[in-house]
Amino acid sequence: MLDAGLCNYVVISYGHNAFSSDSMMKMLMDFGGDDGVFGQFGAASGYAMAARRAMHTFHTGPETWKHIAVGERKWANLNPRAMMYKRKMTFEDYYNSRPLVEPFRLYDNCLMTDGGRAIVITTEERARDLKHRPAVIMGMGQHNTATAVNYSTHLAGPTGAKKSGEMALSMAEITLDDIDACEIYDCFTYTVEINLQSYGFFGPGEGEDWLKGGTIEPGGRMPLNTSGGQLSEAYFMGLTSLSEAAMQLMGRCGDRQLGPETNTKAPEIILCSDSGGVSRCHSSFILRRG
């Protein structure tokens, strides 16, 4: 629309009172049609089903997911806007959190949040005149596997991240090696693992080895969900990740800013993802510093 000259600025916004109202739960309770006949409710159900099949297919489980829950929490502890800003989490805390829909524990689940986010998109030419140095969209890709969890015969992945990631990298004319940080849709810890795996950061079952030692944490070699993500900052659907990527590239992230402040590489390129419908659809965005 911008390229075609149909408009000059596009605002993408999201707002919800999901924490203080029951609207999100009501929406999720009605999501599964007749699934409720068998007691299958909510968003965790489908992802937990996928995660269990993955545990059967390759090496994964709580020992892998704890690195994602704790890693993201460390970023949230640097972000005053995060719901979990003042609450630390250890591996022990993770293991001690109560089971909800197994194989998931409480700390495998994202937050419900009152709040909102918005992004303004315009042309590079107009962005040059604005107050902040912009983040530039280098590449985008979308792939919808379109199969519902109940009927899927490839429940252990790969997800749409595989093809949408290839499309976005190709459009940006870069490879995964050029990515400095990731902002990945994280409705559950496992969602992060299966999408990183589908992008090709590691092979099936290599997630625990790849994540351990603080890979995604402050000071790590591949910082991930640097606001705390949906697990520890706030749930704003795809805008949690996209807005954080843009803010990081603009250098507006304060104590959690990638670069010398957090003993990480100052980012040139960040990969973002969004997914929906319990892995039925997936979008990838690659942003660079303007």
Partner: peptide, 21 residues
């Protein structure tokens, strides 16, 4: 695949916990 519920999102399932879908 399967999941095990430790929470009754719908009250009628409370007596069944933990149950397997």
């Amino acid at each position: 695949s399967f999941v095990v519920y430790h929470i009754a999102y719908q009250p009628a399932f409370k007596d069944d916990l933990p149950y397997t879908v």
